[in-house]
Amino acid sequence: MSATDDPHLGTAEQEPLGPPPISPLRENWRYFLANRGAVIGLVVIALMVLTAIFAPLIAPHDPTAQFRDALLVPPAWTDKGRPEFLLGTDALGRDILSRLIFGARYSLAIGLVVVTLALVSGILVGLVAGYFGGWIDGLIMRVMDIILAFPSLLLALVLVAIIGPGLFNAMLAIAVVLQPHFARLTRGAVMAEKHREYVTSARVAGAGTLRLMLVTILPNCLGPLIVQATLSFSNAILDAAALGFLGMGAQPPTPEWGTMLAEAREFITSAWWVVTMPGIAILVTVLAINLIGDGLRDTLDPKLKRS
């Protein structure tokens, strides 16, 4: 959301640097492990991945099963709670814990799909713009400017309205609005790198354009991209939840957390647990990912220790 945006900023920072030394993976890993927050984040996410994979085994109930005799049952530890519904039930008598467990699948999938789409398209666009320069660069960057001129949530909202509400369409829209960050980052790095000696020598040695872009230049801009990818992962989850909250994301009965919140909004004063639980799930997940992101940034890109 912040570390990226201005191409001038990016390149200005890059200039005094040589190509970052590619340190052995193991050393990075050890450095990463020294960061307590990052490790906590990693553990939380690992647990979530396991939860998502084994959701049918862990969840006490079917997430869409309606217990018609148990509408809006409060959590088990409260007076009116029932032990079989640990976190209570929603308006249709569905078990909230089971829905949250299955919801982990959606949130992780949202993060993965959105980041993959945005990363791949952003890198390609950025490489092309940065490598070729000239009018191609001008055109691409103007398009990116246009996308960035709209508040991202508003743009995503309009895009989803056009292609129709739904989880996959929401992911597409979010990928579109996140993509310029990757494009700008890649372009900035490529512009800084392309006149360096190692690139020139590779070219002299006869490397083709594609090879130059993908094999020679790209690996040297990976650090900031990975950091940005982690940030985007959490942004994707937040934006998808916000779209779900506004009724444009995943459609009920999908147990996506933002959609659960939207459905729960009418119960804000009468059934707090329906509102609180999905929000906590979102917060914890995003927090864990951001912890990992901070750790990765410190490890991979000491120069980008911002935001």
């Binding site: 927050g37 959490s234 937040l238 939840a241 916000a242 909250f245 933002g258 919140l261 909004r265 804000i268 509102v275 609180t276 999905p278 929000g279 979102i282 917060l283 995003v286 927090l287 990912i289 951001n290 912890l291 901070d294």
Partner: peptide, 15 residues
């Protein structure tokens, strides 16, 4: 700050 940064603000507003 990190918690604030990770906050779904629509939920935060309701709380």
């Amino acid at each position: 700050a990190l918690v604030g940064y990770s906050m779904p603000i629509f939920w935060w507003a309701l709380l």
